[in-house]
Protein backbone atom coordinates (compact mmCIF):
# COMPACT_ATOMS: atom_id res chain seq x y z
CA UNK A 1 0.00 0.00 0.00
CA UNK A 2 1.34 3.41 -0.92
CA UNK A 3 0.87 6.70 0.85
CA UNK A 4 1.67 9.55 -1.48
CA UNK A 5 4.38 7.43 -3.01
CA UNK A 6 5.70 6.05 0.28
CA UNK A 7 4.94 2.72 1.87
CA UNK A 8 2.30 2.75 4.61
CA UNK A 9 3.97 2.35 8.03
CA UNK A 10 3.53 -1.17 9.30
CA UNK A 11 1.71 0.02 12.38
CA UNK A 12 -1.06 1.42 10.29
CA UNK A 13 -2.38 -1.67 8.69
CA UNK A 14 -6.14 -1.63 8.34
CA UNK A 15 -6.38 -5.28 9.25
CA UNK A 16 -3.91 -6.24 11.92
CA UNK A 17 -2.83 -9.88 11.84
CA UNK A 18 -5.38 -11.99 13.63
CA UNK A 19 -2.78 -13.40 16.03
CA UNK A 20 -2.36 -9.90 17.43
CA UNK A 21 -6.11 -9.42 17.62
CA UNK A 22 -7.01 -12.58 19.33
CA UNK A 23 -4.40 -12.40 21.98
CA UNK A 24 -6.27 -10.10 24.32
CA UNK A 25 -3.76 -10.91 27.07
CA UNK A 26 -0.86 -9.85 24.87
CA UNK A 27 -2.61 -6.58 24.06
CA UNK A 28 -3.04 -5.84 27.76
CA UNK A 29 0.58 -6.59 28.51
CA UNK A 30 1.68 -4.61 25.46
CA UNK A 31 -0.26 -1.58 26.66
CA UNK A 32 1.74 -1.54 29.90
CA UNK A 33 5.09 -1.70 28.09
CA UNK A 34 3.99 0.83 25.48
CA UNK A 35 3.04 3.30 28.18
CA UNK A 36 6.33 2.70 29.98
CA UNK A 37 8.37 3.12 26.83
CA UNK A 38 6.65 6.32 25.81
CA UNK A 39 6.80 7.85 29.28
CA UNK A 40 10.54 7.27 29.30
CA UNK A 41 10.94 8.53 25.72
CA UNK A 42 8.74 11.56 26.37
CA UNK A 43 11.12 12.71 29.12
CA UNK A 44 13.94 12.67 26.62
CA UNK A 45 11.60 14.17 23.99
CA UNK A 46 12.25 11.26 21.66
CA UNK A 47 8.91 9.45 21.39
CA UNK A 48 8.71 9.67 17.61
CA UNK A 49 12.23 8.29 17.28
CA UNK A 50 11.33 5.36 19.51
CA UNK A 51 8.36 4.52 17.37
CA UNK A 52 10.43 4.73 14.24
CA UNK A 53 13.06 2.44 15.72
CA UNK A 54 10.44 -0.06 16.83
CA UNK A 55 8.79 0.03 13.42
CA UNK A 56 12.12 -0.37 11.71
CA UNK A 57 13.00 -3.35 13.88
CA UNK A 58 9.78 -5.08 12.99
CA UNK A 59 9.70 -4.23 9.31
CA UNK A 60 13.30 -3.89 8.16
CA UNK A 61 15.12 -6.27 10.48
CA UNK A 62 12.56 -8.97 11.18
CA UNK A 63 11.29 -9.07 7.65
CA UNK A 64 14.72 -9.60 6.13
CA UNK A 65 15.94 -11.78 9.00
CA UNK A 66 12.99 -13.88 10.12
CA UNK A 67 15.37 -16.22 11.92
CA UNK A 68 16.39 -13.39 14.20
CA UNK A 69 12.78 -12.92 15.32
CA UNK A 70 12.42 -16.66 15.83
CA UNK A 71 15.58 -16.60 17.92
CA UNK A 72 14.32 -13.76 20.10
CA UNK A 73 10.88 -15.27 20.69
CA UNK A 74 12.11 -18.80 21.23
CA UNK A 75 11.47 -19.61 24.88
CA UNK A 76 14.01 -22.45 24.99
CA UNK A 77 16.89 -20.05 24.50
CA UNK A 78 18.10 -18.52 27.74
CA UNK A 79 17.68 -14.87 28.67
CA UNK A 80 21.41 -14.37 29.11
CA UNK A 81 22.17 -15.52 25.62
CA UNK A 82 19.48 -13.29 24.16
CA UNK A 83 20.70 -10.34 26.18
CA UNK A 84 24.23 -10.94 24.98
CA UNK A 85 23.08 -11.08 21.36
CA UNK A 86 20.88 -8.01 21.71
CA UNK A 87 23.74 -5.99 23.08
CA UNK A 88 26.07 -7.20 20.37
CA UNK A 89 23.64 -6.45 17.58
CA UNK A 90 22.20 -3.13 18.70
CA UNK A 91 24.98 -1.47 20.69
CA UNK A 92 25.89 1.65 18.78
CA UNK A 93 23.33 0.91 16.10
CA UNK A 94 20.21 1.67 18.12
CA UNK A 95 19.64 4.36 20.70
CA UNK A 96 20.53 3.43 24.27
CA UNK A 97 16.94 3.90 25.37
CA UNK A 98 15.68 1.48 22.77
CA UNK A 99 18.34 -1.09 23.60
CA UNK A 100 17.47 -0.80 27.29
CA UNK A 101 13.85 -1.28 26.42
CA UNK A 102 14.65 -4.49 24.55
CA UNK A 103 16.77 -5.70 27.44
CA UNK A 104 13.94 -5.04 29.91
CA UNK A 105 11.54 -6.92 27.65
CA UNK A 106 14.01 -9.77 27.47
CA UNK A 107 14.39 -9.83 31.24
CA UNK A 108 10.65 -10.36 31.53
CA UNK A 109 10.40 -12.80 28.63
CA UNK A 110 8.18 -10.46 26.71
CA UNK A 111 9.99 -10.12 23.40
CA UNK A 112 7.12 -12.01 21.77
CA UNK A 113 4.70 -9.14 22.25
CA UNK A 114 6.79 -6.64 20.27
CA UNK A 115 4.22 -6.38 17.49
CA UNK A 116 1.40 -5.69 19.90
CA UNK A 117 3.58 -3.12 21.65
CA UNK A 118 4.02 -1.25 18.38
CA UNK A 119 0.28 -1.12 17.75
CA UNK A 120 -0.41 0.00 21.32
CA UNK A 121 2.41 2.56 21.26
CA UNK A 122 0.93 4.28 18.24
CA UNK A 123 -2.40 4.48 20.06
CA UNK A 124 -0.80 5.74 23.27
CA UNK A 125 1.22 8.38 21.45
CA UNK A 126 -1.86 9.53 19.56
CA UNK A 127 -3.63 10.01 22.85
CA UNK A 128 -0.66 11.90 24.30
CA UNK A 129 -0.46 14.18 21.30
CA UNK A 130 -4.26 14.60 21.19
CA UNK A 131 -4.39 13.52 17.59
CA UNK A 132 -6.04 10.84 15.55
CA UNK A 133 -5.08 8.89 12.48
CA UNK A 134 -7.26 9.57 9.51
CA UNK A 135 -7.04 7.59 6.30
CA UNK A 136 -8.08 9.52 3.25
CA UNK A 137 -8.50 7.68 -0.01
CA UNK A 138 -9.00 9.66 -3.15
CA UNK A 139 -9.18 8.79 -6.79
CA UNK A 140 -6.52 11.36 -7.71
CA UNK A 141 -3.69 12.71 -5.56
CA UNK A 142 -4.83 15.55 -3.30
CA UNK A 143 -3.60 19.03 -4.18
CA UNK A 144 -1.95 20.94 -1.38
CA UNK A 145 -4.81 23.36 -0.87
CA UNK A 146 -7.31 20.47 -0.86
CA UNK A 147 -5.21 18.78 1.73
CA UNK A 148 -5.08 21.89 3.87
CA UNK A 149 -8.82 22.42 3.63
CA UNK A 150 -9.47 18.81 4.53
CA UNK A 151 -7.17 19.03 7.53
CA UNK A 152 -8.88 22.15 8.75
CA UNK A 153 -12.33 20.62 8.40
CA UNK A 154 -11.28 17.48 10.20
CA UNK A 155 -9.69 19.49 13.00
CA UNK A 156 -12.95 21.30 13.49
CA UNK A 157 -15.11 18.22 13.49
CA UNK A 158 -12.91 15.94 15.58
CA UNK A 159 -11.56 18.51 18.03
CA UNK A 160 -8.29 16.57 17.73
CA UNK A 161 -5.27 16.99 15.56
CA UNK A 162 -5.77 14.81 12.49
CA UNK A 163 -2.82 12.84 11.23
CA UNK A 164 -3.49 12.36 7.57
CA UNK A 165 -2.60 9.26 5.61
CA UNK A 166 -3.52 9.97 2.04
CA UNK A 167 -3.92 6.97 -0.23
CA UNK A 168 -4.57 7.17 -3.94
CA UNK A 169 -7.15 4.61 -5.00
CA UNK A 170 -8.27 4.92 -8.64
CA UNK A 171 -11.03 2.36 -8.02
CA UNK A 172 -13.06 5.09 -6.32
CA UNK A 173 -13.53 6.66 -9.79
CA UNK A 174 -13.86 10.10 -8.21
CA UNK A 175 -14.30 11.86 -4.89
CA UNK A 176 -12.80 10.65 -1.64
CA UNK A 177 -13.44 8.63 1.48
CA UNK A 178 -12.33 9.61 4.96
CA UNK A 179 -11.89 6.99 7.61
CA UNK A 180 -11.62 7.88 11.30
CA UNK A 181 -11.44 4.82 13.52
CA UNK A 182 -14.37 2.60 12.56
CA UNK A 183 -16.30 5.39 10.89
CA UNK A 184 -16.15 5.79 7.15
CA UNK A 185 -17.33 9.01 5.51
CA UNK A 186 -17.82 8.02 1.93
CA UNK A 187 -18.17 10.66 -0.76
CA UNK A 188 -16.73 8.58 -3.56
CA UNK A 189 -18.29 8.36 -6.98
CA UNK A 190 -18.19 4.56 -6.79
CA UNK A 191 -20.42 4.46 -3.73
CA UNK A 192 -22.75 7.07 -5.15
CA UNK A 193 -23.15 5.05 -8.32
CA UNK A 194 -23.82 1.93 -6.29
CA UNK A 195 -26.41 3.71 -4.18
CA UNK A 196 -28.30 5.07 -7.13
CA UNK A 197 -28.13 1.69 -8.83
CA UNK A 198 -29.67 -0.04 -5.82
CA UNK A 199 -32.31 2.66 -5.48
CA UNK A 200 -33.26 2.32 -9.12
CA UNK A 201 -33.54 -1.43 -8.75
CA UNK A 202 -35.63 -1.25 -5.62
CA UNK A 203 -38.01 1.50 -6.65
CA UNK A 204 -38.62 0.44 -10.21
CA UNK A 205 -39.15 -3.20 -9.29
CA UNK A 206 -41.56 -2.07 -6.59
CA UNK A 207 -43.41 0.06 -9.13
CA UNK A 208 -43.54 -2.71 -11.64
CA UNK A 209 -44.83 -5.17 -9.03
CA UNK A 210 -47.55 -2.89 -7.77
CA UNK A 211 -48.76 -1.62 -11.14
CA UNK A 212 -47.97 -4.23 -13.69
CA UNK A 213 -50.63 -3.02 -16.13
CA UNK A 214 -48.84 0.32 -16.56
CA UNK A 215 -45.70 -1.27 -17.89
CA UNK A 216 -46.99 -3.81 -20.32
CA UNK A 217 -49.48 -3.67 -23.09
CA UNK A 218 -51.93 -6.43 -23.82
CA UNK A 219 -51.02 -6.41 -27.47
CA UNK A 220 -48.39 -8.78 -28.68
CA UNK A 221 -49.03 -11.51 -26.13
Amino acid sequence: MKVDGEALPSYFDETPPSAVLYDVEARRVARVYAEALLTAAEKAGRSEEMLEELDSLLTDVFRSQPDFERFLTNPTIGRDRKRHTLEEVFKGRASDLFLNFLIVLNAHDRLDVLRSILIESVAVLDELRKRRHVVVRSAAPLADDQRARLLQQLRQVMQLEPKLLAIVDPELIGGLTVRVGDWLYDASVRTRLNTIRNQLFASSSHEIQTRRDRFSSDQGN
Binding site: E14, S18, R179, D182, W183, L184, D186, T191
Partner: peptide, 12 residues
Protein backbone atom coordinates in the same frame (compact mmCIF):
# COMPACT_ATOMS: atom_id res chain seq x y z
CA UNK B 1 -26.67 13.33 -3.07
CA UNK B 2 -25.38 12.93 0.42
CA UNK B 3 -22.24 11.60 1.95
CA UNK B 4 -22.63 7.99 2.93
CA UNK B 5 -21.54 7.69 6.55
CA UNK B 6 -21.15 4.21 7.89
CA UNK B 7 -19.35 2.37 10.59
CA UNK B 8 -17.13 -0.24 9.01
CA UNK B 9 -15.10 -3.24 9.92
CA UNK B 10 -13.29 -6.01 8.15
CA UNK B 11 -13.79 -9.74 8.00
CA UNK B 12 -11.04 -11.52 9.90
Amino acid sequence: DQIDVREVGRVL
